[in-house]
Design a binder for these strands. Sequence first.
DNA 1: GTAGGGTTAG
Length: 794
Amino acid sequence: MLWRSPSYLSSAATSLCLRRRSFYLDLISGASTLRHLDQILAHAILSGRHPDLVTTTKLLHRLADLGSPPTHLLRLFSSVPRPDLFLLNVLLRSLPPSSALLFLSSLRRAHPHLRPDSFTYAFAASATASLLSPAPGRALHARVIIDGFATDPFVGSALTDFYLNFSQVSAAEKVFDGVPDPDTVLWNTLISGLVQNCAFLRSLRVFKQMVMTGARFDSTTLAVVLPAAAELQELIVGMTVHCLGMKSGLAFHSHVVTGFISLYSKCGEIPAAKFLFEQIDEPDLIACNAMISGYSSNGLVGSSVDVFRELLAFRGRPNSSTMVGLIPVSSPFEHESLSRSIHSFAIKSGLYLNSPVSTAFTTVYCRLNDMEAARKVFDAMPEKSMASWNAMISGYAQNGLTEMAISLFREMQDLNVRPNQITVTSTLSACAQLGALTLGKWVHQIITQEDLELNVYVLTALIDMYAKCGSIMEARRIFDGMVEKNVVSWNAMILGYGLHGQGLEALKLFKEMLNARIAPTGVTFLSVLYACSHGGLVEEGRAAFWSMTCDHGIKPGPEHYACMVDLLGRAGQLKEALEFIETVPESAGPGVWGALLGACMKHKETSLARLASEKLFELEPENTSYYVLLSNIYSANRNYPEAAMVRQQDAKSRKLPKTPGCTLIEIRDEVHIFTSGDRSHPQSVLIYSMLDKLTGKMVEAGYRAETDVALYDVEEEEKEHMVKVHSEKLAIVFGLISTEPGSEIRIIKNLRVCLDCHAATKFISRITQRLIIVRDATRFHHFKDGACSCGDFW
DNA sequence: GTAGGGTTAG
């Protein structure tokens, strides 16, 4: 270096040197502080040399690098009598995004001789990518098109990046398509941005297209496409990329190797990941993190800790990602104490309580069903990431706290935090559990508005939501539109038909699935059995059960046995059901006996009911719902002393209050909830007078209230009321008076619909000529013209 | 102008 101290500048020799441009340039690039630069500039001017365009450009560059405020840069620029395009571009690149764009907008007035080129627009476009609003970027895009730069790969890349930063995937693709000869960087920008927007399928498609068109790919390309393959667990695609990498020699680039380690770990190929990791001479922090998380997520917590120790011993400090990878999210129960101790370590160190670490802990606590701890971690996060919102929402949905999940999603919308596929998938699951069709439709609308990629997860969640919220046709429409279906999608659709009592449709779809060579899983058979059971298809169900073990080698679990007992029991084959239980290899669980008890209920089989109840009391002494069932069976047979005794036992054992039966109906986006005998509704006078009129007409048509008949597992409080004012009847009547004649009525009951309401609804559907869809605790009933879709197999 | 690891889902 020419000089070390500012005092050196005062020497005459330096003055002479400064007259020569190259020395001057060297001095500028060597300056290490703003003060140095000031002194150089002052000296130059004193020595009679005014900086020319080249030196000013250099100076501007250096000033920006050393953190000079934007006002200084602008002042320097305006001191130049006739700035050229190069200087303008350097200025634009050096200014903070908003000042750069502001400056550009005044350019035409201030410097009419300067015609922006592709660099100008590229820098400007990349400035728009980091703003809070997309509006300036869109305006710039318009100018780019007018000025004819939309076909330039440099500009296109910056614009593509801009749109992807604002999650406008389609717009980004449009920009890309407008560039006839995309270069490697432009391809990479699109692929990487798609991955960041969770559009993994699209990114793989673009990569394929890139390779097919013969475009040159580089290590960045491979590094950005690998996470997409890993995320989708597309091992074959990943291995193809590996082959491409080997052939081109790019597979040994450190970023790419890390990508492979992560890919193989995520696909469960730990030996391959381990092999690659051990091939690296000196793995860096990121490679170690990939391996740590790979082991941990595959349940190999010991090996994960080994690599962590190695990292501490030889490669220095771990970072927050190391911690995230180390937490055994995949098996929290097994390593609960380890997770909690990592958490307290993280809190103590303070350094690690950033968003990804907190998100991992949120997840762990959700999995441990410790929702309060999870929420505490979530609330303590100053900056919430997409993943942290998703972790909390899915945690609520999976723990059945559906309202919490939905209200958190609402909060996100209110805060203008844009959801991604995972957010909507979790929220849809909550809507499905709740049976909230209007909410579900709203989420569907948001998916469309946000242009979220419709991947298998999202579409399957939509099928599930529509099916569980009563729109089986809409579910089927989405199912048919799916290009790529997997087992879960088929399962969701089959289960949907089962819920709606369309057993034959379910079986037809199951056959189609087998023809399409999709290997069924235990869940598939559970859905098929369920559909048979709710459609009264006993023989078909039996055949499916045997085919499961014989043809597909799937060992039936307790839930399959329970479903079979339910199937036989509903159809009145109680003896066969009991015989079937005796074939259960291990002792039958509560599910199996519960199913038998439910069947006894329907067929008023007191002695068998007693047997089943005794088994249940033995297996689950704390579960109170069986007492209700048994007592109802006795009262159905008019054996009131026994009924009273059971009820007394029940009262003794009961600790928690019962959930009262209630029915929900949505009218024009508003939710109305009715309980039995409810008079709290503002229109309750009208509702009751309508109900009276309707009951009159029903009686005329032959309806008799079945007050002394056993009510399913309805609760005591509800039973004490006249069945006439059951919550479902109130909700139906409210539906009748609040909607157009002829339109369908949908209600949701939290318990199983009672026999009397079931019969009454049939009459109502005929008298009013309405389709009434009732979702109860176990299935859907479509009442139409005096009949129910369940064919009374409910 | 693009760049590897970590969190979230049916």
